[in-house]
Design a protein around this nucleic acid. Sequence first.
DNA 1: AATGAATGAGAGTTCATTCAT
DNA 2: TATGAATGAACTCTCATTCAT
Lengths: 216, 216, 216, 216
Amino acid sequence: MEDRVTPAARKRVRLKPEVRTRQILDAALAEFAQHGFDAARMEDIARRAGLSKAGIYAHYSGKEALLEALLGAALTPSAEPRDWLLAGGGNLRAVVEAFVDQLYDRLAAPEVVAVMRLAIAAGGRVPHLVQHWRETIFQPHLAAQQAILREGVAQGLLRPSALTEEVSLMYAPAVHAAIVQMVFQDEASREAALAMRQASKRLLLDLLAPEAAAAP
Amino acid sequence: MEDRVTPAARKRVRLKPEVRTRQILDAALAEFAQHGFDAARMEDIARRAGLSKAGIYAHYSGKEALLEALLGAALTPSAEPRDWLLAGGGNLRAVVEAFVDQLYDRLAAPEVVAVMRLAIAAGGRVPHLVQHWRETIFQPHLAAQQAILREGVAQGLLRPSALTEEVSLMYAPAVHAAIVQMVFQDEASREAALAMRQASKRLLLDLLAPEAAAAP
Amino acid sequence: MEDRVTPAARKRVRLKPEVRTRQILDAALAEFAQHGFDAARMEDIARRAGLSKAGIYAHYSGKEALLEALLGAALTPSAEPRDWLLAGGGNLRAVVEAFVDQLYDRLAAPEVVAVMRLAIAAGGRVPHLVQHWRETIFQPHLAAQQAILREGVAQGLLRPSALTEEVSLMYAPAVHAAIVQMVFQDEASREAALAMRQASKRLLLDLLAPEAAAAP
Amino acid sequence: MEDRVTPAARKRVRLKPEVRTRQILDAALAEFAQHGFDAARMEDIARRAGLSKAGIYAHYSGKEALLEALLGAALTPSAEPRDWLLAGGGNLRAVVEAFVDQLYDRLAAPEVVAVMRLAIAAGGRVPHLVQHWRETIFQPHLAAQQAILREGVAQGLLRPSALTEEVSLMYAPAVHAAIVQMVFQDEASREAALAMRQASKRLLLDLLAPEAAAAP
DNA sequence: AATGAATGAGAGTTCATTCAT
DNA sequence: TATGAATGAACTCTCATTCAT
C-alpha cells in the first residue's frame, strides 16, 4: 500500500556472494516476518538488502528459494547440549534455570518467533523441508531429551511425573509464550513471556525435584 | 499451479442469504487454511461455495471482509463454563479430566487449528479484531481463570504451585499440541495431541491435588 | 520502441465470446506478422482487439495459446478440390490456369504469407501442431495430388515428366514467390509473384501437355 | 524452460580476436537457428562460444550486431560462377547436374537453411541489410543468370521455355526444399530434398535441352 | 580481453474487484 | 441475487546491457 522501505538509491556496489547472500536472507526474513510470505515483495526485499530486484536473482532463483534458504538455515541448528541434566553438578535449581533460560532464549527471541511464524504460515510451501526437519532434528531431539529425563529418573535425580513421561510438556510453556508473541506482536507479550519463563522454572523444579527437595 | 478445486459448473441457484453466507464462510476457511490468506483465491472460494466469483461480492464486500467474518466469528466463542472447578462436586480428577478434554477439543480440533493458523498468519491484517478479542475475550478469560485457581487454593481445594500462579501454564500443552498440528498437518500430529492430552491430565492432577491427594 | 497501436481507451464493452475470440485472433495474427511471435506484445494485441491485456486471458490461456489457435486454424483448411484435373473437360489450358491461379491465391495472399512466416519463425514452439498438420494435411494432400498426376499420365491426359513424378515441383514456384514476399515485404515482390504465376502456367502447360499439344 | 546449453565452467581464456569472433558467430547462428532471434539468449550464445555473457560485448556491440554480422556475412557470398552454362563443354547433362548440385548444396545445407530462416524471421530487424543484399547481390545475380539463359537460347544451346524466360523457376525447387526443411526440421525433409534435387535435374534437362536432345 | 555482479526496463501473467445483463 | 466478461494494479521473473575488478 504505502511505501514500506526507504528507496536508498545507491550506486552499483559489488559485494562478495557470502555477504550479499546474508544481506538478502536477512532482508527476506524481515519482510516475510512483517508481511507474510505471499504479501512480501521482491522489490522490498531487494531494497532492504541494498540492491535491485533483479540482483537477487543472481543469488537466488526466486522467491520460494529465499523461503527455502531461510527455513533451511533456521531448521538446521548447530549442535545442542544434550547433557544439560548432568551439567549442573547436582544442583537441580541451577540446571533447570539454565535449561529454561536457554529454551526461552531460543524460542522466544524475536528472530526465532519470526522464523516460527514463517514456518507456520508458509511451511506448506516447502513440505519437504518441514518433513526433513521433523525427521532429522525435531523427533531425534525429543527422543534424546526423553531418554535423558528417564535416565535422570532412574538415577534418582528426578522425580517421575507426567513431565518425565512426556517431554513435550517441558517445551509447551515456551511454545505458548512464542505463540502469544506471534499473535499479539507487542511489548506486553514480550513481558508476558518473561513471566512465563519464571513460572516455567518453578514448574519444572516443582515437578522434577526428588521428594526430599520438593518442599519449598 | 494445478487445479485446486473441482470446476463444478452449476446453474445459477438462488439460496437464502444465511445458507449462502455459511457456505461461503466454510469455503473461505477451507481455502484460507489450505493456502493461507494471500494465496487463497476468490475464484476457488467461490467454486467451493458453489457460486461464481462475482457472486461472493453480493454477500461480502471483499476478501478481507471474509477474513473478518471468519475471525470475528471464531474469536467470539459462546459462553464458557467459568465454574468448572466447583462443578465436579469435590472430585478433582473428574474436574481436571473434563477441563482438559474440553480444552483440547476446543484447541486441537481441525477447524480450530485452521482458525488459529489464520490468526497467526493473517492476524496482522485485522489488528483491530485481534486487539478487540484480546481485550474482551482473551485477557478477561485468563483473569477469570486465574481468580478461580486462586480461589481454589484459598479454599484448600488446590495445592498452590507455579500453575496456580500462572494460569497460562494450564493452556500451554494444548497450545503446543495445536501448533504441532499446524506445522506438520498430518495424522501423527493428531495422535501426538491425544498423548499430550492424557499427559496434561496427569500433570494437572499432580500439581493441583492438595498434598494428601497427590499420591496416585 | 515507439507506440505501435492507438490506445483507444474504450469503456468496458462486453461481447459474445465468438466475436471477441475472432477479434483477438485477428489482432494476434496482425501483431505476430508485424513483429514476430516473441517481439509481439500482449498489450498491443489486446489494444488492437479492443480490450485490456487481462481481458485476453478470459479467452486464451496465454500467448502460446494464441499461436496455437492461430496456426491450428490456418493449418486446418477446408476441403480442397482433388479432382481439378478432370474438371476442365479436357481443356488442359483451362485446367492448368485454374489450378495455378488457385494455388497462388492461396499461397501468396498476404494473410497466408503472414501465417506461413509465423509457421517458419515460430513453428518450433508448437511442434505437435506442425507434426499433426504434416501428417493429416500436408502429406496426404501431396500423395493425393501425386496419384492424380499419375492417373492423368496413365490416361494419356498428361505427358510423363519429372513433374508428374515429383509433384512438389508443381508447388515450388508458388512457394518461391511467397518466400520472396516474406523476405522483402514490398510491392515489387508482390508483382514478381504475378510474373511467376504466369510463368508457372506456361511451365505446367509445357510439361504436362501430351506430345501433340506441346507445341505452342 | 530447461537448460539449453551445457554449463561448461571455463577459466578465463584469452583467444585471438578472429578466433573468438568466429566462435561467437557460430554460436549465435546456432542459437538463433534453434530458438529464433528474439528467443535466443546472450547467455546461451556466450556459453556456447565458451566465454561469459559480458565477454561478447568486447567483440560485438550487442545482440543486433550479431544478427548484422551473421546476415551480412551470409548475404555476401564469395564470387559465384557466372559462366556455368559454357563450362560443360557442350554436355548439357553435365552442366545441369553441376548447376543443380551446386544450387542445392548452397540452399539446402543446414547452415544455409539456418541463415535463411533467420532472414525470414528476423530480416525485418535489419531492413537495410536486406535491401542492400537485394540490390547488390540478389537482383544482379538473377539478372545475370537470366542473361545467360537468353544467350544460351540465342546460341541454340537451350530450348526456349517458360524457364528461360523466368529464371526464378530454376531456383524455385531448391527454395521449396529449403523451406520444407525449415518447417519440419527433420531427417525426412532432408531426404525429400535429395529427391527434389534429382527431380530438378530431370526437369531442367527436359526443359532446357534443345529439341533433339529432349528425349530420354 | 574477460568476468561476475548488478541493473533497468519491460513482459507475461494473476487476481481482486467491477459492471452490464 | 447471480454471472461471465472485463479491467487495473500489481508482481514475479527475464534479459540485454553495463560496470568494477
